[in-house]
Design a protein around this nucleic acid. Structure first.
Lengths: 422, 422
DNA sequence: ACAGTTTCCCGTAAATGC
DNA sequence: TGCATTTACGGGAAACTG
């Protein structure tokens, strides 16, 4: 009878941060005959959630409002709650929230709506509730929370299985790769192609990625660290999404960032190209880094590959990435510095590709000489730049419709004024 | 009988930000004979402040505590309030806080302490209160608030003249310059010398600065904008203090930053020096900027002065200032770039002065080529760098003891855990 | 000691008030 | 409308807490 249906959260719905305002809206789908009094709706957080095991929260601010004819649309009743804010319930007795089994971003919560009215002598109780919600206390928990929201909505149709992460199902790589591509198209404006997904599949699954039915566990996806690295697969991927959103948007949208490519594949691609051909790829060793690799032909006919130390958000906020590509110089002992980047793979002249994205700000503060930062690498004559080991290449990927996903995720909780992330 | 005496606030005492925790401590100076019950002290904010004209605040959190024998020291009674937090009182009737006459940082408030006890049948009421306090709601108001605290404590000994800024007295330049130097020695570790103060005096007073008895109005000091600039004298100076604190501390402490020097004086100093002699000075046109000016001898014998576009906190957080000096290069159309900075005025070889402060981080992320940002200025062959107009030079300054000031300012309100500023 | 989690609060941006 | 002031909250870091 009632349906929780609210404006899509601009970025990451179904995650609420304590102490930060959020908005929610309920709509009554049936039209009631002559309700001549005001229909009050009350929201309750974590209603009926048994104490223990998980944290519990309550709504700090006023949580009862009267339904009203919806402004636009077909005159059904609706009510929007604004400025709601969550706070954790503290127990005096020894009961603790979060008993070690689940991490806080795996705890699922819910927001309930209740209304009661009498019509023609009949008392009717209405109650409904939201899809499972993740509650976090700091934006640093947002990536973990979003992993949970994705996994839940990808793998179940149940409207309210709060115990989902007690025993989370696996996803096929086919399903998962679709969601990952969708993440990039939603947050960065441009999805992932087959080759990029192949590299991600190998990274997550090794050789098994050849089979799109191969299953990925929740743990492998976002809890276990990648072998030899202090972060999980999803933390790594999300750090790249954030980097794109904040610093690489235009370059990414032009499809100029190959991004996900094994080092072996990189060499294969570059080795027969013109000297100075380069490609852009994300760091696999550090969170949120991007590097370029260019090919150089030595005098003796050898082919050499060089990769610059990855740029991270700090560097990129000092200097936009396109400008880095424009201005990058290598200095070798007293020689006139030169920009080794000539052609974006396969063969696009650098300025043709990036020209529009350059930021040329010669800043005319008159009494002063304009100054800018430029990125340089200084090569000592005795320096060596040994080619590192790399990963194995591999096969393709399933495409597909993600109607189901977008349907679920378009739902619901909305934290006021573009809340998390840019 | 009682005295409010608390730990010196690490940075800026007597300023409290709403919603941020602060700490205060009261000590009972007389020793009471056998008080066999607990002595309760209550703090009240803005006690007896008549409504209207100014905002009023109250203490959100628990504000009554029992006095206790002080841990260390001579066993007198004391009590420390922690986690106090201020919130503005809102009036239902039309009365507004802050009626236009005074800005919020000129409003003075106070924190009162009360205790009542009976000894040998005699009831005694104790009450005392803090020096005037400034209440702000955002750190952006901190410079304005600190200006008020300085002016008050510099110019009056009254313990509680909350109407002080209704008609604030003037300060002699002699008094003021002392306080300014003290600001730099307190917050940046190194005070101002005679020449620096002279330049500041001229900037504030023009020719009158020759007379150290000349008076500076409160308005001129911190309210009126400097002619042609969108900021007041104090806002400008405080922006420089902040820049030093965050980005220039070591260079400032070595006395390598002349900083306050008129452009005319700058030329006088540099013109007879070796080519490549440079000095460091703060921007007068923008908040929180530092530039270097170097002298160059043209082939035709002319002397030319060049100043780089000032570096602000954003640039400096991408690249430490000493590294900027080390790596700065001027590129003129295809010539090998050169660093024009050779000698710190008067004649210290650059690396001798700054060597210890360089940050050399060649970063050994092995598979990658290390990269860094370097600051460059690109000179087009047809570019001109016209010498700008400058200010007039002038005379000396009074030194002196600032015991009074430090005595007053060492007082009192303490906002938990290094609150404002670094 | 330590890792997961929360709190604290600056500093920027946006909202609000006058 | 513009300016002064407050609120909002991301993001880094410290504090907490088992």
């Amino acid at each position: 009878e009632k349906q929780p249906c609210m404006p899509t959260h601009p970025q990451k719905p179904l995650i609420i941060k304590t102490g930060v305002q959020f908005t929610t809206k309920v709509r009554l789908l049936v039209k009631l005959p002559e309700v001549d009094y005001q229909l009050k709706v009350k929201t309750t957080f974590d209603k009926d959630l048994p104490p223990g095991r998980v944290r519990q929260f309550f709504i700090l601010t006023n949580n009862t409002k009267v339904m009203d004819i919806e402004d636009y649309s077909n005159g059904c009743l609706s009510v929007e709650f604004r400025h709601l804010q969550l706070k954790e319930k503290k127990y005096i007795n020894g009961t603790k929230g979060n008993e070690g089994l689940l991490s806080v971003t795996e705890e699922l919560h819910s927001l309930s709506f209740e209304a009661c009215f009498t019509v023609q002598g009949l008392t009717i109780d209405l109650e409904t509730c939201s899809l499972p919600l993740v509650v976090i206390s700091n934006v640093s928990q947002l990536p973990g929370g979003w992993a949970s929201v994705m996994w839940y909505n990808l793998l179940t149709d149940e409207p309210r299985n709060l115990a989902f992460f007690g025993n989370p199902p696996r996803a096929t790589w086919s399903q998962l790769s679709e969601v990952l591509s969708w993440q990039f198209s939603t947050f960065a404006g441009q999805g992932l192609n087959k080759e990029q997904l192949t590299m991600l599949g190998e990274k997550l699954l090794g050789q098994h990625a050849s089979c799109s039915d191969y299953q990925v566990s929740w743990s492998k996806f976002s809890k276990e660290n990648i072998a030899g690295k202090p972060f999980s697969f999803w933390m790594w991927l999300d750090s790249i999404l954030e980097l794109i959103k904040k610093h690489l948007q235009p370059v990414w949208n032009e499809n100029y960032i190959m991004g996900f490519v094994s080092k072996e594949m990189e060499r294969t691609l570059l080795k027969d190209r013109e000297p100075g051909t380069f490609l852009l790829r994300f760091s696999e060793s550090h969170l949120g880094g991007i590097t370029f690799t260019w090919v150089e032909h030595k005098d003796n006919g050898d082919v050499k590959f060089n990769s610059v130390e990855p740029y991270t958000k700090n560097r990129l906020s000092a200097l936009p990435f396109a400008d880095i590509i424009r201005d990058y110089k290598v200095i070798s002992d007293g020689v006139v510095p030169e920009n080794p980047l000539k052609f974006l793979y396969p063969d696009i002249p650098k300025d043709e590709a990036f020209g529009r994205l350059y930021n040329s700000q010669p800043s005319k503060v008159h009494p002063y000489i304009p100054s800018t930062l430029i990125p340089i690498s200084e090569l000592r004559s005795n320096s060596t730049s040994t080619p590192p080991s790399c990963q194995s290449p591999e096969p393709p990927m399933t495409p597909g419709e993600f109607d189901m996903l977008s349907e679920h995720l378009c739902f619901d909780i909305d934290t006021m004024s573009s809340p998390y992330s840019d």
